[in-house]
Design a protein around this nucleic acid. Structure first.
Lengths: 109, 109
DNA sequence: GAGATGTGTAACAGACAGCTTACGTAAACG
DNA sequence: CGTTTACGTAAGCTGTCTGTTACACATCTC
């Protein structure tokens, strides 16, 4: 779950969101943020080390692309907790209180 | 997404995992970690401010319980990205490659 | 009430994250 | 080749985290 630490920063989440729409060069990416280019370069490094992005050298440019695998891991980490809010939203917690224990039935849609 | 910052810490994730199994008192909780009790108290404060846990006073004890709502928000934040790894796993990326000239085709395995 | 018990908070030290400016380097360009 | 272009990295500053010890405060117990 190293991805969680990387995604804790709002700038990095925004970078991830941008890259979800398509790959971009480092400078191109930095131009969309109010901070300096080296700052973005460092953010990209963190994202790279977390496995969330991968780089491709294209001439002198560095093209960054999103790698969704750590997000998938996050999804897997989150999975066991899903039943917790699934219970709260439905009226089935009445059923649970009725004597049923660990009736999972999450993700009905 | 303040929850992401709170969950970035491994100790806090462990607390969340413990509370998912059932509510616990602060000291009872602290006893299961190698750090001092005030340290856990601080972690609990962060989790509380992130809305991930709620406290109930029971005599002089403070009983903590998990509040899954921020986790649900995280789930919602993650949702738009799901298609990204769904594509990689499924065979539908063939359909995408069928008309698009974006011949990326990396990661053959 | 006096003392024990269960917790949160304050103060402080050390580690770390994020930003900026300055610099190094490799590819493209003339 | 020298210069421009596109990046990454190093150094330094500052603010924020995390952990520890010391302390303040309620709440039971007797």
């Amino acid at each position: 779950m190293e991805a969680l630490a990387a995604l804790a920063d709002p700038t990095r989440r925004q970078i991830v969101a941008l890259l979800a729409a398509g790959e971009q060069g480092a400078g191109e990416l930095a131009g969309q943020f109010p901070v300096s280019r080296p700052a973005i370069s460092r953010h990209l490094r963190v994202l790279r080390e977390a496995g969330l992005v991968k780089v491709r050298a294209e001439g002198q440019r560095r093209v960054y692309a999103l790698d969704p695998r750590p997000l998938s891991e996050l999804d897997a980490w989150l999975a066991p907790y899903r039943r917790l809010w699934a219970q709260r939203l439905g009226a089935l917690d009445t059923e649970i209180a009725r004597g049923r224990r660990a009736r999972t039935q999450e993700d009905g849609r």
